[in-house]
Write a protein that binds this DNA or RNA. Structure first.
Lengths: 342, 342
DNA sequence: TGTTAGCACTCAACATCAAGGAGTGCTAAC
DNA sequence: GTTAGCACTCCTTGATGTTGAGTGCTAACA
């Protein structure tokens, strides 16, 4: 069977109505709601077809129809074609320039959650392809050095390095020059074994310390990998009974607190990124188990120079996709602007 | 009326039974449960007295009794007298020495939550009374300095300082010596206007920059105040219907995510600290609105030298106070040990 | 051939009602 | 002071009926 024009109109009407009310929608409603001028009986026949085709389903025999995952998918796809540039006015949107990346991200998550009334999460931009901008070793005391590593985007990392023997001021200065000349401007991937060997050689007798230092630098960089994710509006899930019934709330709250599983979502988004960087996971499509009853919309944002992160919105399948996608687009561009002012 | 010995026994029996079952407990149950050898009728009379005195209450006319806040308070107080040193075996307790304070705290929260099956939170130890150990200014580029401040306990803070005019290497070195000689060993409160004025004077022409630097140092220290709190096991609240019915879950989850309100709890605990550093807030006693239906047990822990933080456990009023307090005691001593190995 | 009116049917939701039972308060007897 | 007995309360549970929204099917219509 084919999804002809009339079926499409009816399907959209069913979905749109369900998004608004959250109640199963019947044939009579559609008959009045659309301007097709068809009787409820005709609509019923079409709806039976749509059900057979898997776009809608009945919670029980004598109830109206609700969209299936496949139905939502159809809706999202056609909707995204139609209004690709819908601008959404954000209430109380205040994203000031923040020194601290952490504060900025928390703020973004909060704004997104408040505007959409769904749960929001945001991952810190990966520093993966980031370049080292500045390294400094200082002596904290006889047995400890402190390494400060600054990368593009002014992400600062510290690490305390224990050392066996004391290092003279002279050597410390030498190390600093050595490290900065050799490592500045390199991305983390580019610091390979060859460079490390060369550094060790030039460090002479204190070569072993250079080893420890490089390890520490590696540590500092890896530490960033262990997903910094901020969430906001987790409690918005309680607005939607279908997410919180039957103990589902517990799982979802757990996922949002643990953040580990959110990482897989972020990962997935970053990997198969489409043109606009916005993706919609409906129900079973979601890579996260606890979100099989939700829809998840993710967007990659960019703070320039490959500093990519992900924003995610989690809500019921009957979420307001228009608004959510619009909000994410707006946020994307706001973040873009923010960086350009730099 | 007086709370005589028999009444105490009955009250305790009621509470203990209610802690186990979560159901209102009737006179017949108590008559069998205790070894008082009293008939249910006698118990009934006593229970009527206890209700009049406000220790227990009836959900409805023909139901058994449940403890009131006052009842719980009595129970907790007498219980804490009796077994002040109960040792609780912690399952899977693995607190390894962690370089990163953050990782350690998250781990503690997780261990506590898993062991007690309640929601747990932990605040980072305050660096308030902490002493400056090391300050270093470095030049990031022509217009930016980076300040690294290390305090006792190796808490590291960074701050980027924008500067109008470029500073020579020579001056930078001078500044560093100046800052370290004057500020090292001082607590944050001790850095007063007098010292700042003296520093500015000695800095000469670049005095204004010193001002900015001090401000940044202040910033770095204040930044720590904005409560680093980690939570774990928030979803444990779903184990207890009395915490999640009627939309209460939403509020609680919100509180745990926002963390701001948890701050007041932490604050309160740190302020009126008793001997053992453990406090119990039952129902209305809690300073946090959303926890008026919960009990909260908090404990201050110490990582030596005035580095005090707070651990909190949030659960239903019918929580297993014995176990919770035992767990907190154990954690307290483990953390103490951990620091001593330093 | 597509559309529609009509009708019997289904089923969740809701209200009503009775039975069961846990527990109480009170009274009178021990 | 303690206890047995009894009437009473009120939640809980399950059964029963009613309502209403919505369906599928059929036959008639354009």
């Amino acid at each position: 069977m084919e999804l002809d024009e009339r079926k499409k109109i009816i399907l959209k009407a069913v979905i749109r109505n369900y998004l608004e009310t959250g109640e199963p929608v019947g044939s009579r409603t559609i008959s009045k709601y659309t301007d097709l001028n068809l009787s409820s009986a005709t609509i019923r026949n079409e709806m039976a077809d749509l059900e057979e085709m898997g776009y809608i389903l009945q919670p029980h025999t004598s109830a109206g129809r609700i969209p299936s995952d496949k139905g939502y998918r159809f809706y999202v796809d056609t909707m995204m074609e139609e209004k690709d540039r819908e601008v959404v006015e954000l209430k109380e949107m205040l994203l000031e320039r923040q020194d601290k990346m952490e504060t900025l991200l928390k703020q973004v998550a909060k704004v997104v959650a408040q505007n959409t009334q769904y749960a929001a999460m945001i991952s810190a931009p990966s520093t993966h392809r980031n370049k080292v901008k500045f390294i400094q070793l200082s002596r904290l005391n006889a047995t400890q050095l402190i390494a400060v590593i600054v990368s593009e985007g002014n992400i600062i990392k510290n690490n305390i390095i224990p050392v066996a023997e004391e290092i003279s001021d002279e050597n410390l200065l030498k190390f600093n020059i050595l490290l900065n000349t050799h490592l500045t401007g390199l991305s983390m991937e580019e610091i390979n074994l060859g460079i490390i060997a060369a550094l060790k050689q030039q460090a002479g007798v204190h070569g072993n310390i250079i080893g420890e230092v490089i390890d520490a630098v590696g540590d500092a960089i890896k530490a960033d990998d262990d997903l910094e994710i901020y969430t906001s509006g987790t409690n918005n899930i309680f607005r939607y009974p279908e997410l919180t019934d039957n103990g589902k709330a517990s799982e979802l709250v757990g996922t949002f607190e643990e953040k580990q599983q959110l990482g897989t979502l972020i990962q997935e988004t970053l990997e198969d990124e489409a043109g606009t960087g916005i993706q919609v996971y409906i129900g079973e499509e979601s890579p996260v188990q606890s979100m099989k009853d939700c829809s998840v919309v993710t967007a990659t944002y960019e703070l320039g120079e490959g500093m990519k992160g992900t924003i995610g919105i989690v809500g019921p399948k009957r979420m307001d996709y228009d608004k959510v996608i619009g909000t994410l687009r707006t946020i994307q561009s706001k973040l873009d602007e923010l960086y350009k002012k730099d």
